[in-house]
Design a protein around this nucleic acid. Sequence first.
RNA 1: GCCCCCAUCGUCUAGCGGUCCAGGACGCCGCCCUUUCAAGGCGGUAGCACGGGUUCGAACCCCGUUGGGGGCACCA
Length: 522
Amino acid sequence: MQHRGSGVADQRRLRGRYRLHRRRPAMTSPSTTGVRTRFCPSPTGMVHVGLLRTALFNWAHARHTGGTFVFRIEDTDASRDSEESYRHLLDSLRWLGLEWDEGPEVGGPHGPYRQSERHEVYREVAQALLAAGHAYESFSTNEEVEARRLAAGQDPKLGYDNADRFLTDEQKAAFRAEGREPVLRLRMPDEDLTWTDLVRGEIRFAAGSVPDFVVVRANGVPLYPFVNPVDDALMGITDVLRGEDLLPSTPRQLALYAALTDIGVASGAPRFGHLPYVTGEGNKKLSKRDPQSNVDVYRERGFVPEGFANYLALLGWSIAEDRDVFSMAEMAEAFDVTRVSANPARFDLRKAEAINATHLRALPVEDFTERVVPFLARAGLVADPPTAEQRRVLGAIAPLAQERMIVLSDAVGLLGFLFVEDVEVDPAAAAKQLAGPEAAEVLDAAQTALRELPDWTTAAIETALKEALVEGLGRKPRQAFGPVRVAVSGRTVSPPLYESIELLGRERTLARLAAARVAVPG
RNA sequence: GCCCCCAUCGUCUAGCGGUCCAGGACGCCGCCCUUUCAAGGCGGUAGCACGGGUUCGAACCCCGUUGGGGGCACCA
């Protein structure tokens, strides 16, 4: 990625060149263009479902408005960031189908898109803020602030008391003489800070309720509440959709934007939309420690991106009164941020599975088959790529298996019996279907019926088994076929029986019936 | 403690003053179909937190209460 000049004047020029006009807070409409949204995670560990939902909504908002979706990496914390989780982030976004228009590996006119490559920019902007008097040097230590609040009979939790706002040069010099280095704080305005939140409407913070905050550390390292808006401004972000947890920091950002606008780095504040939390069991926000919050878990279980994205979208948004299954394209078409719910949404695994199952069934069979292969291969059931014979079996069984699965990994348990020499019979299934003398009779009759069957076809197998078991033994279908199914597939749930037997072939079928017969107690 | 957000079936939601004795989905429970299990079809179960207003009329507007959640770093 190219690094360009980064002086403030440079930035101003660049912005003048690339930036689109900012709009006043207003409800979005499809005809409005120039919307620029962004997704800006920090690469510290696993990808959280709430994080991905935020990305999805930003993507959808950009696509719906014909705008631009920007991806920026906030890797300013070297101790927690890792290249591995950076790669993983890109991979997860792409997996879900969230292609970004500007960002890492794609480039764009506002790069670089990794904060670790933008230090110069922040330094310049901070200096400009200081020079213009919007920021000032502050020498107070936390201990001193706390002591002052206590002395004034106030709650120390109130934080910094703006005491260093009007330090004279002599005072500053004295502090420096003591060996102190100042932090840079932004001077908060003396008026209420309000905005019209895209999802929550009017929000107001009283003047004086937010203290002057640190913008650059004493050691010169800029802080998140500073670099984040600076990058947004420089990248021309018009709509900030982020988690509700950042709502309380919005007043500070508004103040920063006012200052940035004054010095020509920004032109007004973006619109903000604070998305509700995704919660887990209970009502607590889904913790990073909760295994349910890790997107990889779903991916590895074989959720398809279409299904997972669909479910994620349902966490706070609905496409219509009587519908909840839709594609990404349909979402982009219909998405309206102002209709996102402000309520926290509980991640409901059962519903996620149901939505996924629907998408799985809607897949063209060939597509479905392709997606199942890696799961079977990983389980050691088929070669990768599968052999011609394995392909033949897969092609035949896939359409029958498709509607019986919820996630792709279900294929391992459902189809495994077709790709091994001997089945391992599920003990619970055996207990249920391979117990008493009735089962033994059924297995004997089935072996007899199939042993000399001239045509090894589904139709012939069906006729033979029905004649032998239903008519011959007078069994009800469920009693007749239950033991056979378990003997052959090892489970009580399998693809349709006759087709399965045909695919399995005479030899393995008879061997399994015999093995099951021997295993029947008594 | 201070500030902020939220409040419709168990869960996710529709509802943006009358068409709501509140609609859909997941779950759950029946029934049908059926070679098991699913899938599919049909039906059922269950909700506007509470109290005041405003209004001819309130799930929808306002205030309060209660309850839940979040934020208050030289972390992102």
